[in-house]
Amino acid sequence: MQITVVEGDITTQDVDAVVNAANRRMRGGGGVDGAIHRAGGPEVLADCERRFPRGLATGDAGWTTAGRMPARWVIHVVGPNHSAGETDRALLTSCYRRALEVADELGARSVAFPLVSAGIYGWPLEDAVDAALETLGGTPTEVAEARMVAFGSSTYDALRAAMARHGLGSDS
């Protein structure tokens, strides 16, 4: 699998699936979650309510339609809230592993990922980047491209530097 890094808006990525850093309820929210629900339209929320009436557990993943976005699917993951004391790194890495497993079930060959838990959930940036790249690089999958989509130059720069350290993929 090729890992690429771009700076931009995850909701506009021309990929098979985008990954949503959702909350447990899966009913929309702030950050990536809010942006995906706004861009995808009411179809995303309706599918979340139908498919996940009780939401998802931290570290798990599930899919819905992408609604009005260019992608076909949204793969929702629930990252740990570091700011609220959820500091088990295995829950964070599980998000990436489970997202790839769901992508394989769907037949998705290109998947755009945000940096899970590094925003409002407060996971330290460098460790969030390392957890993402180590897990994506070390998980067997049929996905051809995992695209890390950085929202902002500081995240983009951190991802590029880590890619070089880990000897992974390429960037755009």
Rank of each mutant, 00 (worst) to 15 (best):
S83M: 04
E49Q: 15
G40V: 09
D60Q: 14
G34T: 06
V77E: 01
W73P: 08
E49K: 14
A84W: 13
G55K: 00
A57L: 14
E86Y: 04
T87L: 06
W63G: 00
V74E: 01
M69F: 10
G30A: 14
N81T: 03
D33G: 07
D33A: 14
G55A: 11
I75F: 08
I75P: 07
I36F: 02
G41A: 07
G34N: 06
R89K: 13
V32W: 06
D47L: 03
F52N: 05
G85Q: 08
I36S: 02
P70W: 11
V77A: 10
D88W: 11
V78L: 07
A57S: 14
V74R: 01
V44Q: 01
D60H: 15
H76Y: 07
G67F: 04
H37E: 02
A35E: 01
D60P: 03
S83V: 13
E49W: 00
E49A: 15
G30T: 11
L45C: 05
A84V: 00
G31Y: 13
F52L: 15
R38Y: 09
G41L: 05
R89M: 11
R68F: 11
R51W: 00
L45K: 03
E43W: 02
R50T: 13
A71T: 13
G34E: 03
D88Q: 09
G79R: 05
E43Y: 08
D33E: 14
R68G: 09
V44I: 04
H37D: 04
A39Y: 11
C48K: 01
F52W: 06
G85E: 06
C48T: 14
T58N: 04
S83E: 14
H37V: 12
W73G: 01
A84S: 14
G30P: 05
S83F: 09
T87P: 01
D60G: 08
C48W: 00
V74P: 06
H76G: 08
C48H: 00
P42R: 14
P80E: 02
N81I: 00
R89T: 13
V44R: 00
D60T: 15
A46K: 13
R72P: 08
V32D: 00
G30D: 10
G79L: 00
H76E: 02
G59K: 09
H76C: 11
G59A: 12
P42Y: 13
